[in-house]
Design a protein around this nucleic acid. Structure first.
Length: 889
RNA sequence: GGGCGGAUAGCUCAGUGGUUAGAGCGCUUGCCUUACAAGCAGGAGGUCACAGGUUCAAUUCCUGUUCCGCCCA
């Protein structure tokens, strides 16, 4: 027998052992199969709300398909997360008084590896607390030995195909992490800053051009000034020259169409080394044969590198202050305006990004190449489907406007780029071998390897096939037969481009197949305030705390309950409570059944008609079939919210509220088989949402492991049990009738109490039940109705105190409610209210029906429905008027 | 600047071209009825952001406005 109340702590801790130590979770290489790869969490990470939701959804799908008889496998692991991890370790070392600068590359790497060995699996242990059914024994790591082979193989392949090149470009530079970043790793934030208007003196003239800039420190790197050739104000200056202030460098004035006439003064200073737009203009000018200089004025730390300058060694912001001060002194600063603009920040350390001219490795991303072209094709043709579908367009737009991918990073933690340089013959080649000692061209041993490492997203782009041991072809093919492409990828929007879109083209390139069939993009859960959940802002809610307080089951279910399709939601504790209460409800419904199993039960009333008993059983079985039909559809459409809600309402409002109550009039043997199958269905379909409690109850009640059950067999059994399909509607009618009567009874009791009138029972009389129910049920039904509505059912009353009554109709059943004479006044008002209500409805419908256009154009069944309704309303109105007359006496 | 999404009960959110627009929580009335007070039976609470349009009919479809959020540059 279960305890009185559900307590997650008694269940979950015990079951965790059973889930992960006793039962082996591993691929069985059987058909039908189902597979998912996890978005690998960062090794530095700890379980946050996004993970909790994301993994709940995946676990739902994995467990659901297990129960459907699939060989359902969830591949998991962690991501080395290059910069993020390096930063974490760097900070930790600093706390211990160890500076990164004082360490050799090898020493630093050793520290990071040690850190990884110690802390790197914490997040997976945290995932277990959610109860996820994943292939933990083979949890992969993006820098494990086999994975590294995949990365090298992929790089060499792309290199040899000519997709990878090294180039000097302006890239995003983080002067704190000391590395380049891809465009996607830069977070733009709108900020208030100053717009400085600065005079640039013309050569040989006493005239000035005034230029607005937000970054006066970059004046030091100006190598041209540009105006729009359509701008009448400035046409005359094109091809003249100006002096760059402070450095007094003579630079040309060029005409460039990209210059925004309306911004600032319409004159733009060109700083090709430290501005993306300026760099573009620089390249464009070069195509036109105009060669301007590129001057890099910053060190890697973003300090001024000009040795003979007075600003030498100053940080970029300090330099800005000084330069503004000097410009003012020289009388060259015209004015300062405040201005809002978007500024790029490092997505790992939030430092302001510096556009920086340097040597980097790129992958050519061109929609006309097969690499991207094939990705576009599979998305366009829905070979990969997005849920919700809007993301199809979002991804396609990104592919269509894609830019080359900067994949080199100047950090130590990552896959070292497998490119080698020969100092003798100057050969440069990519090599996937573990040890490379000689030049492949001239055999010289005077070679060295590239120092840069790869963008962490390069390795994660290979994830779906690398976790299945590609490029070990024998091993991979074994997995591929059953698990590739994977069925679905579940993720948040923010890594759609960083990760999802890249996996697609990598998989097409290397496996010649899509990596997954469906992509679910789920909502983001915001803090209750509507802000992003963030540890640093203190707005985060820790799922581990939720699990501790409410249990993993309630947390999982509560998360699904608050997340619709992809609309972001504010975190809602009430939904977690709702889930917990629901679990308690199920728990207690099982307790009731156990109670019936184990003791003699005193009936208040026992149903006499066996047909009615069968009907009640058939009724719940059919309701269950409808439920299952809906649930299966919701899974196919990835409508988890609808899945959970329909189970919720079925369990609570159908199974508990009605079926269990009905069984209180029925002998155990007469409903045992039925209730067992219903309970099994409920628990099995609940299992993907609340694995712990469903597992626990199933074992407690049936002494079986829920995961050994096959839903399909269960449903077959259920179908066999139904023996009265046709009359099953009668039970719905009974329920509706009871619900219809209840408020009236409740009101009478309430009014009597208010007026200090003793009213032991409300008396009602029912007529015409035979119109809705079979004759032989009726005496049973009268008793049921009496108990459920807490009223006494009479034939007719001769008692003088009940000589007033009024009549209600439910379909064709007349419900006569007897009224004590002291309550008559109250009831008159009650009926008047009812009457007014009906009259309003009547007028509305009559108006509609007298509208010719409505009659001509509306659907026939719509019109019929209105007509039917009108006649019903009319009947009620007539009756009520009669009653009012009666009550007036 | 370009694109996308949202605005529905006090709160968090579902939903729908056609009777009276729903849920949970909150509020409220009555019940400790032998599964459950984490419960049971009731009740109150909505100009479906605003303005136009399409339609016999709009909260739902279209356009615009305002506000909020996200993505890209």
């Amino acid at each position: 027998m279960l305890n009185k109340n559900y307590n997650h702590k008694e269940i979950e801790e015990v079951l965790l052992k059973e889930f992960y130590e006793v039962n082996k979770i591993e691929p069985k290489f059987k058909n039908p199969s189902y597979s998912i790869v996890i978005p690998p969490p960062n090794v530095t990470g700890s379980l946050h709300m996004g993970h909790a939701l994301n993994n709940t959804i995946q676990d739902f799908l994995v467990r659901y398909h297990l129960l459907k008889g699939y060989d359902s496998v969830w591949f998991i692991g962690t991501d080395h997360a290059g910069i993020a991890t390096q930063n974490v370790v760097e900070k930790k070392l600093l706390k211990e008084g160890i500076k990164r600068k004082d360490l050799s590359k090898e020493e630093f790497l050793k520290y990071i590896w040690d850190w990884k060995e110690e802390y790197g699996n914490i997040i997976l242990e945290q995932f277990k607390k959610l109860g996820i059914y994943a292939y933990f024994d083979k949890a992969r790591f993006t820098m494990d030995e086999e994975y590294t082979k995949a990365v090298k193989k992929a790089f060499v392949h792309l290199f040899n195909k000519g997709y990878i090149y090294k180039g000097k470009r302006v890239i995003n530079w983080c002067s704190r992490c000391l590395t380049s970043l891809s465009d996607l790793e830069v977070v733009h934030k709108e900020k208030e800053n100053n717009l400085y208007y600065v005079k640039y003196k013309l050569e040989d003239e006493e005239d000035y051009l005034i230029i607005a800039t937000t970054r006066p420190e970059t004046i030091l790197a100006d190598t041209a000034v540009a105006v729009n050739p359509k701008d009448q104000r400035y046409i005359k200056y094109i091809n003249k020259r100006v002096f760059v202030p402070i450095v007094n460098r003579l630079v040309p004035i060029v005409g460039v169409e990209e210059v925004d006439i309306s911004f600032g003064t319409g004159v733009l200073k060109i700083t090709p080394a430290h501005d993306f737009n300026d760099y573009k203009i620089y390249k464009k000018l070069k195509e036109r044969g105009i060669d301007i200089d590129i001057i890099n004025i910053f060190t890697k730390e973003a300090c001024i590198n000009l040795e003979d300058s007075k600003y030498y060694g100053l940080d970029r912001f300090k330099a800005r202050e000084e330069i503004v001060k000097d410009l003012e002194q020289m009388g060259l600063l015209v004015k300062v305006e405040s201005h809002r603009s978007n500024i790029g920040h490092c997505y790992r350390c939030d430092n302001i990004i510096e556009p920086y001219y340097s040597d980097q490795w790129f992958i050519r991303m061109d929609k006309n190449d097969p690499l991207i072209g094939r990705a576009i094709e599979v998305v366009k043709s829905d070979k990969i489907k997005f849920y919700p579908s809007v993301f199809k367009k979002v991804v396609l737009d990104w592919y269509e406007n894609i830019e080359d991918w900067c994949v080199s990073r100047q950090i130590v933690w990552g896959h070292r780029i497998p490119v080698f340089y020969c100092k003798d013959c100057l050969n440069i080649w990519a090599d996937e071998r573990d040890e490379v000692k000689n030049c492949i061209k001239c055999n010289s041993d005077n070679i060295y390897q590239e120092e840069d490492v790869l963008d962490t997203w390069f390795s994660s782009a290979l994830w779906p096939f690398a976790v299945m041991f590609w490029p070990d072809i024998d091993k991979f093919n074994k997995y591929k037969t059953f698990y590739y492409p994977t069925n679905v990828l579940t993720t948040a929007r923010e890594i759609l481009f960083l990760w999802v879109s890249r996996m697609i083209f990598m998989s097409l390139e290397f496996i010649n197949d899509i990596p997954f069939k469906d992509v679910i993009i789920h909502a983001v859960i915001l803090a209750p305030s509507g802000k992003r959940m963030s540890k640093s802002l203190g707005t985060g809610i820790d799922p581990l705390e939720l699990i501790e307080k409410y249990g993993a089951d309630s947390t999982r279910m509560g998360l699904i309950l608050q997340v619709g399709e992809s609309q972001d939601v504010k975190f809602n504790y009430e939904k977690i409570e709702m889930a917990k209460n629901f679990i308690n409800k199920i728990w207690n419904s099982i307790r009731y059944y156990q109670f019936r199993l184990s003791s003699n039960y005193d009936f208040k009333y026992k149903l006499k008609d066996k047909d009615l008993v069968n009907l009640i059983n058939s009724w719940i079985l059919i309701k269950t079939l409808y439920l299952i039909e809906n649930l299966e559809r919701y899974v196919k459409e990835y409508k988890f919210f609808d899945y959970v809600m329909s189970l919720y309402h079925f369990v609570w409002n159908v199974f508990c509220d009605w079926y269990l109550e009905f069984t209180k009039f029925i002998e155990l043997e007469e409903f045992k088989d039925t209730i067992e199958i219903i309970i099994k269905v409920i628990l099995v379909y609940l299992h993907p949402i609340v694995p712990f409690v469903s597992y626990y109850i199933y074992k407690n009640l049936f002494n079986e492991i829920i995961l050994d059950i096959n839903i399909n067999d269960l449903v077959d059994n259920l179908n066999k049990r139904i023996d009265d399909m046709e009359n099953v509607k009668a039970i719905d009618n009974l329920i509706e009738l009871i619900k219809f009567i209840r408020p009236y009874v409740n009101d009478l009791l309430f009014v009597s109490k208010q007026n200090n009138i003793k009213l032991e029972n409300v008396f009602i009389h029912l007529q015409g039940l035979e119109k809705l129910f079979k004759d032989n049920y009726i005496s049973d039904l009268l008793n049921i109705i009496s108990i459920f509505t807490k009223s006494k059912i009479t034939e007719l009353s001769d008692d003088q105190s009940f000589n007033k009554y009024y009549d209600l109709y439910y379909n064709d059943v007349l419900i006569r409610i007897f009224i004590e004479k002291d309550l008559i006044d109250f009831y008159r008002n009650y009926i008047l209210k009812e009457l007014n209500n009906k009259i309003q409805q009547k007028e509305k419908i009559e108006k509609l029906l007298s509208n010719n256009e409505f009659i001509n154009k509306a659907n026939l069944d719509v019109i019929e429905n209105y007509k039917k309704e009108l006649s019903q309303i009319n009947e009620i109105i007539t009756k009520n008027n009669q009653i009012l007359n009666l009550l007036r006496n």
